[in-house]
């Protein structure tokens, strides 16, 4: 096996990898969009007066959070066809990763909602606001700033977990690097480039998120 770095080969595969990086970003974005919405639903569902609902949702969230994402991806992808429901790799992958991160985000939201002072709730009751309005206009906007840090971390997290989608054939970065590796028998360049691309995206994103967080806090007059 060749030990030295081959620049010609690097320039040959770089466009392919960058193209695949777009798919990685798309997968992360779609998965995150699902997680943001579903996570909110899971968080709000735990606040209903019904103890049974709260218990079931809590256990569900705990279950998702304590089992490996990769296994969940396999589960969603392979269990469907057993019952006659065929899911494409993208659909199955998005469901699995979206569901996984919705469990994490629901915990973040839960913390954010709990951080809203009790007086805000009492004021809503005193003003006779409907529950929907209470949540939408008063509580959730105040819960967001304290949830932002966690949400940002999981955005980077979901991005870094997308390589797992390669196992069911989603054509993202890792999958492309694997394909290049197995057709050319060169692993040094593709895997190293994948690492560099990940760093080049995740470090600036993490920094941007921190800046954005500070901006939102200042806008809302906190700190």
């Amino acid at each position: 096996m060749p030990f030295n770095w081959n620049w010609a080969f690097t320039w040959e595969i770089l466009p392919k990898l960058l193209h695949a990086a777009l798919n990685t970003l798309l997968a992360a974005g779609l998965g995150y969009a699902i997680a943001v919405v579903l996570g909110l639903i899971l968080a709000l569902a735990q606040r209903t007066p019904s103890r049974a609902v709260t218990f079931v949702i809590r256990e569900f969230v705990e279950f998702i959070r304590s089992t490996p994402l990769i296994l969940q991806i396999f589960f969603v992808y392979y269990v469907g066809p057993q019952f006659g429901l065929r899911l494409g790799p993208w659909t199955a992958g998005m469901i699995a990763i979206g569901l996984h991160y919705s469990a994490y985000l629901s915990e973040v939201y839960r913390g954010g909602l709990q951080a809203v002072p009790k007086g805000q709730w009492e004021a809503c009751t005193a003003l006779n606001l409907s529950p929907a309005k209470t949540y939408w206009r008063i509580i959730i906007p105040q819960a967001i700033p304290s949830a932002l840090a966690g949400m940002g971390n999981y955005l980077v997290g979901i991005f870094k977990d997308t390589p797992m989608l390669s196992v069911i054939g989603v054509a993202e970065l890792m999958h492309t690097a694997n394909a290049i590796g197995s057709s050319s028998y060169r692993y040094l360049e593709p895997y190293t480039l994948v690492g560099i691309i990940f760093l080049a995206i995740s470090l600036p994103t993490a920094a941007l998120i921190r800046i954005f967080e500070g901006y939102v806090r200042r806008k809302l007059g906190l700190k």
Binding site: P163, S166, M174, A177, Y191, T192, G195, F198, L199
Partner: peptide, 11 residues
């Protein structure tokens, strides 16, 4: 922390 575990594992 900036790259994926899977990338590191393969590397």
């Amino acid at each position: 922390r900036g790259t994926s575990l899977l990338v590191q594992l393969y590397w």
